[in-house]
């Protein structure tokens, strides 16, 4: 398999297109899942409004009321955007022996899943970015919150890195499928804890400095909390640069971990069926 071989890229382009088609086929499903994402945003917005109304402070956990509302909206949307879901397909592939196809066919499982994931995310990403633009425009009109073009570009860059990082984290986690057969529920449990640790429910600062210190040592906050803080102006340009480098470092580290887990795990693989 060579990089100069046009077929190398073409097969993954096709995989990306397949993912795109799947996303378009289930577009209503995605739109509905977005409605599901709106509920927590509404509940949390009311909660924060009540808390800030009852508090004598103008700033809580380092966030003004407006900043926390913006955070709440963005966290709901971004955690939905980086949400994976392919781990269930991997579980199915391993459990039902479909993984064997990838062992004999000239296609890598990792690039196949990555291309498929990005293909599926593309229309969702466009839709979420449109909603995001509408929300930011609304906030600009109502509260006069303005965001520079530079920050938007940096945000989009960190968002792409966040997508890749979250993909690799869940790719590594999916390797559990080689050890345990029925783990759909376990994935769900892991997912919800990761959302919490990534700042997808509340800003991490809310849980105290020690919690922030712990999350600083983990990759999860670079999937949701960090891109949001890039956009809402809480990070300096220097911090943004450091954050992007950290995102790349975590991508490499998680890839190494995933490669190790998949190498060890695939040795345990037993093809089931004919």
């Amino acid at each position: 398999m060579s990089l100069h071989n046009p077929g190398w890229l073409q097969k993954y382009r096709r995989t990306l297109e397949m993912g795109l088609q799947t996303a378009l086929e289930y577009r209503v499903n995605f739109a509905i899942s977005l409605i599901g994402a709106i509920y927590p945003i509404i509940i949390q917005s009311f909660l924060w409004t009540a808390i800030y109304d009852a508090s004598s402070e103008t700033e809580l956990y380092g966030y003004t009321y407006r900043q926390i509302i913006v955070y709440t909206f963005l966290a709901g949307l971004i955690s939905r955007l980086v949400h994976t879901g392919f781990e269930y397909d991997i579980m199915d592939d391993v459990k039902n022996g479909k993984f064997s196809n990838f062992l004999v066919q000239p296609i890598g499982y990792f690039p196949y899943r990555l291309a498929n994931f990005f293909g599926q995310k593309l229309p969702n990403m466009i839709l979420i970015l449109i909603i995001l633009a509408v929300i930011l425009l609304g906030l600009n009109t109502v509260w006069g919150i303005s965001i520079t073009l530079g920050r938007i570009v940096l945000f989009l860059l960190t968002l792409v890195l966040a997508l890749v990082l979250n993909f690799i984290i869940f790719y590594a986690i999916s390797a559990i499928a080689f050890w345990l057969v029925e783990i759909g529920f376990l994935f769900e449990g892991i997912r919800i804890v990761i959302i919490l640790l990534s700042g997808g429910i509340f800003p991490l600062e809310v849980f105290g400095p020690r919690f922030v210190q712990i999350t600083n040592l983990l990759p999860f906050k670079y999937t949701v909390s960090y891109p949001i803080n890039v956009l809402n102006g809480r990070l300096s340009v220097g911090d943004i640069g450091t954050g992007m480098i950290t995102q790349c470092v975590w991508i490499v580290l998680c890839m190494l971990l995933a490669a190790y887990l998949w190498r060890v795990g695939s040795r345990r693989y037993v093809a089931v069926g004919g």
């Binding site: 345990l180 029925e182 783990i183 759909g184 529920f185 376990l186 769900e188 449990g189 892991i190 997912r191 919800i192 804890v193």
Partner: peptide, 10 residues
């Protein structure tokens, strides 16, 4: 066990 893990996460 997975069910328990999921519910603990929630």
């Amino acid at each position: 066990i997975g069910n328990m893990a999921m519910e603990t996460g929630y």
